[in-house]
């Protein structure tokens, strides 16, 4: 059998997987339109052991964000994953952090100044909508699992026969 014939034979056998791969590529690359106009958002963010208030912020891609950053007990820091923005604040002082939300997804902001025992877990969440990475991941998981089940359905038990290898029945 030539290489081309072999490839066709493989495709005939595994066409479900091929469709699954095409769909998976589709859901990972399908352009998601921006539905809201960019705005300027001013947010007051207070840090205290071991949480941020608010602990979750929703904005949209393209928004200009102004964070008034304060600390209410000890010295705290602010580090935004994915944006690399870092700031430090002492109690009684307000620091202003400004940036434009260019990337979509969930980005954790973390305390970047050692502030006590739970410091490494002092985390808040900035969600820049539309949360493409999350929805693409969900779609990817759905496509993957449906592809696997369809493959199991159409392969009429080949996986099952394989499974019985190495099995010592109960």
């Amino acid at each position: 059998m030539s290489r081309v014939q072999k490839s066709f034979a493989w495709m005939r056998q595994h066409w479900v997987i091929l469709i699954g791969i095409i769909l998976a590529i589709g859901v990972m690359t399908f352009p998601i339109p921006q539905i809201t106009d960019p705005q300027t958002r001013t947010i007051t963010l207070d840090a205290r052991q071991f949480e941020f208030a608010p602990h979750r912020i929703h904005i949209n891609k393209g928004d200009r964000v102004i964070i008034q950053f304060t600390a209410s007990d000890v010295v705290h820091g602010f580090y935004l994953d994915g944006y690399g923005i870092q700031e430090r604040v002492e109690p009684g002082i307000t620091k202003q952090i400004e940036f434009v939300a260019e990337h979509t997804g969930k980005f954790r902001y973390r305390c970047s100044v050692s502030c006590g025992s739970l410091h490494p877990f002092m985390i808040g969440e900035l969600v820049v909508g539309p949360n493409e990475p999350f929805w693409r991941a969900i779609a990817f998981v759905i496509v993957s699992v449906i592809t696997l089940i369809a493959y199991q359905f159409f392969s009429k038990g080949t996986s099952y026969e394989h499974a019985t290898l190495g099995t010592s029945p109960a």
């Binding site: 996986s159 499974a163 109960a170």
Partner: peptide, 21 residues
């Protein structure tokens, strides 16, 4: 996403094989 999907697919396939036993 990659590692969780891999684990999920492996788990679903294992479920099929166990049911098949």
């Amino acid at each position: 996403t990659g590692i969780l999907t891999a684990g999920m697919l492996f788990a679903v396939n294992t479920a099929y094989k166990i049911a098949g036993q």
